[in-house]
Nucleic acid binder design. Structure first.
Length: 268
DNA sequence: ATGGCCTTGGTACAAGGA
């Protein structure tokens, strides 16, 4: 079973690119961020024609999230949009349960997937940073509840947090900057304290592994980036994690997203 | 060489991203 997350930076622009990636990488679920489409503009028909069903939650111009699942699989259920109880104008979260498809498998159960586009935060001290902190607090409380109901849980998306200095190409230049502040990193650790595990760090990984590279300054060619897109797995899923990798290939395409997909491989 | 972006809305350029 493969699960993936990808900030596509406009699904309208990236749809052909996304379909090409999906046909080469048949995942069991993919969460998208920054679709930048209102719900009426979501390309449901095009995706269905390519063999994908979806649930989505968008808004105009900014943000927007979706969950894609092969049409051959059971439909995602118990769909939640945004953090329950947290008033938010911005479309940043979509959660759903993937029903277990192999009834013969023992000891398993449904898998809960939460796809999230964490706020950017712009700069420490700004209003947007304060919003990011409130949002992170609400997310933490909600994920705690979700874990009680769904032991097999995956939280993945664009976190807009580089958890450690090794997730930053130039930690000195980025010290205290957005994505790297102590406050943001404490929130990331807070999610881990719920019993979640950073799937990427369950394995030995190449140094200088990033998921995002600035469009400017030849950052991708020089491999100057950040690791800000993450897949966290619950304790119940951890023994099943076989691999977690960043697929840099789509970042080399013409008109790429500035983010690369992250892919999780689970046994069974 | 040293600096170099992209998307949306809307039709010039500002806002936002990270």
């Amino acid at each position: 079973m493969k699960l993936a997350t990808w900030n596509v930076n406009s699904l309208g622009v990236r749809l052909p690119h996304l379909l090409a990636w999906l046909s080469a990488h048949p995942v069991d679920a993919l969460v998208l961020q920054e679709t930048k489409l209102t719900d009426d503009k979501f390309p449901q028909a095009e995706l269905a024609q390519a063999g994908w069903q979806a649930v989505w939650f968008g808004q105009k111009t900014y943000n927007g999230v979706a969950l894609l699942v092969p049409a051959s699989q059971a439909a995602p259920c118990e769909v939640v949009r945004n953090i329950p109880g947290f008033e938010d104008e911005q479309a940043r979260v979509i959660a759903a349960t993937l029903p277990r498809t192999s009834p013969g498998a023992s000891g398993g159960s449904d898998t809960r997937v939460i796809g999230a586009y964490f706020p950017n935060g712009q700069a420490p001290g700004s209003d947007k940073f304060a919003y990011k902190m409130r949002w992170l607090q609400a997310l933490h409380a909600w994920v705690r509840q979700e874990l009680e109901r769904h032991p097999r849980l995956v939280l993945m998306g664009d976190f807009n947090i580089a958890p450690e200095d090794r997730d930053v190409h130039d930690p000195v230049a980025w010290a205290g900057q957005i994505h790297c502040t102590d406050e943001e990193r404490a929130h990331f650790q807070g999610l881990l304290s719920l019993g979640l595990h950073d799937a990427f760090r369950l394995f030995e990984q190449a140094p200088k592994s990033w998921t995002w590279w600035d469009y400017r300054n030849l950052a991708f060619r020089k491999n100057q980036g950040l690791r800000i897109d993450h897949i966290l797995v619950s304790a119940a899923l951890r023994p099943m994690v076989e691999a977690c990798h960043i697929d840099k290939e789509p970042r080399k395409a013409e008109r790429p997203s500035d983010h690369a997909p992250v892919v999780l491989t689970l046994s069974a």
